[in-house]
Amino acid sequence: LEGMTFNLRHLGMTLVDQPKGEDLSAAAVKRIVATAKASGKKSEKVALKVSPQGIVLHDSLTNKLLEKVSIYRISYCTVDKLHDKVFAYIAQSTLNGTLECHAYLCSKRKVAQAVALTVAQAFTVAFELWQVAK
């Protein structure tokens, strides 16, 4: 309920045309990883906090708030099949409603799995809270 924080590297984001789907997210992660590699830059370190309210991202070095993503805007999360240290989620942009897939590199496969399971738990808790509120 109070949230869990993970230290990850933001690989990047790409637009997707559906809110969910294994093949869709796999293709999106493939694009993000290819772009990140081609750029040659080190991806930025971020602290990703997961709670039933959503995902909050801070820059790990400066502690600057990067983004707050409401749980109601997150449609899907996954650990990529091919890149098994990559955690990704799909969320609807608050600016223009487009769907964005964001990918994060974790130190280990187990960490990527833990992030995905924590987000899934947040989905479940948010759903319970939503039912009660309704």
């Binding site: 997210s25 899907y76 999360c77 099949k81 899934a120 989905f123 948010a126 759903f127």
Partner: peptide, 18 residues
Amino acid sequence: NTNTIHFDNPVYQKTTED
């Protein structure tokens, strides 16, 4: 092993105002 970890959000696009 073809098992993948992926989850759909049951509250996506839902709000308490619905």
